[in-house]
C-alpha cells in the first residue's frame, strides 16, 4: 500500500518544485500577467480569495453538492451493487447500464440536465451519475470476489447470519468500497465544478471560476483551480485516513 519512505517523499517534493518551476519559467517567457501570472502572484490571489466575504459560502456550497451527490450515489450503489454481487442475472442486466453511464461524455449529461433540472440540482445530478458507477461496480466486484469457502466455514460452525454479514461480508468488501469511493471522489469533484461552470448556481467554485473567466481574470481562474485541487486532495487524504484506520489487517500482510 501507500507507505512512502522518506526517500520517496524527497521525490514528491522534487515533483512539486518541478511543476512550480515549469510554471514560473513559462510565465516569464510569456511575460504577461494577464495571460499567465507567476506562481507567487497566484498564491497572492488565492490569499485574496480567502479574504473574500463569501469565500466560505462559495466553497461550502460546492462541498455540500459533492457530499449530497456522494451520499445518494453511495446509497444507490450499496443497494444495486449488493444485488448485482449476489445475483448474476442482475449483474448482467446492470452492466450495460453502468457502461453507458460511464461512457457518456460529462458535457452531454450537463447539457441535458440544464434542460431538465433547476440550476442548483444540475451539479448534484452530474455528481451522482459520475460517482455511482464506480462505487456500484466495486461493491458488486467485492461481493463476487468474496471467498465462498469462508462462508461455508462460518455456516458449519453455526455462526449467526448477522455476524456473517458484519464480520465476513463487510470487511471482505471494504477494500473494494474504499477504492470505489476514492476514484468516485476524484472524478466527482471535477464533474461538480464543470456542472457549476455551466449551470451557474448562485454560489459554487465553478460559478466564480466562470465569472473570473468572463472578465479574463486569469489569476482568479487559476486561484479557484488551486482551491479545487486542494479540496479534492483533502478529501482523498480523508478517505485514505479512514481506510488505513479500518483496514488495519491489510497492513499486517507479510
Amino acid at each position: 500500500m501507500k507507505i512512502s519512505s522518506s526517500k520517496n517523499r524527497g521525490y514528491t517534493l522534487l515533483s512539486i518544485l518541478f511543476l512550480l518551476g515549469t510554471w514560473k519559467v513559462a510565465s516569464m517567457l510569456i511575460g504577461s500577467e494577464l495571460i499567465l501570472p507567476a506562481p507567487e502572484q497566484t498564491a497572492l490571489s488565492v490569499g485574496e480569495l480567502f479574504l473574500e466575504q463569501d469565500f466560505i459560502r462559495i466553497v461550502s456550497a460546492t462541498i455540500v453538492r459533492g457530499l449530497l451527490g456522494f451520499a445518494i450515489s453511495f446509497l444507490l450503489a450499496i443497494i444495486l451493487g449488493t444485488w448485482a454481487g449476489i445475483s448474476a442475472p442482475f449483474h448482467a442486466f446492470l452492466q450495460p447500464i453502468l457502461v453507458t453511464i460511464r461512457s457518456t461524455p460529462v458535457i452531454s449529461l450537463i447539457l441535458l440536465a440544464l434542460i431538465w433540472f433547476d440550476v442548483g440540482q444540475v451539479p448534484v445530478f452530474i455528481a451522482i451519475l459520475t460517482m455511482f458507477p464506480f462505487i456500484c461496480t466495486n461493491i458488486a466486484e467485492g461481493i463476487r470476489n468474496l471467498d465462498p469457502k469462508l462462508i461455508v466455514m462460518a455456516r458449519i460452525y453455526r455462526v449467526p447470519t448477522r455476524r456473517i454479514l458484519k464480520d465476513i461480508y463487510l470487511p471482505g468488501i471494504s477494500p473494494f468500497i474504499f477504492s470505489g469511493v476514492s476514484s468516485a471522489m476524484g472524478f466527482g469533484w471535477r464533474a461538480i465544478i464543470i456542472g457549476e461552470v455551466l449551470s451557474q448556481p448562485q454560489y459554487g467554485i465553478g460559478t466564480f471560476m466562470q465569472n473570473a473567466q468572463t472578465y479574463l481574470l486569469v489569476d482568479k481562474v487559476i486561484a479557484w483551480t488551486v482551491i479545487a485541487i486542494v479540496l479534492s486532495y483533502l478529501f482523498d487524504q480523508l478517505i485514505q485516513l479512514i481506510e488505513k484506520y479500518s483496514l488495519t489487517w491489510k497492513y499486517h500482510q507479510p
Partner: peptide, 15 residues
C-alpha cells in the same frame, strides 16, 4: 455438532 478442519486454514484475514 461439527467442527471442520479444511484443506486450507480458512481464517478471516481481517481478524
Amino acid at each position: 455438532q461439527f467442527s471442520f478442519i479444511f484443506h486450507e486454514p480458512r481464517l478471516l484475514p481481517w481478524k
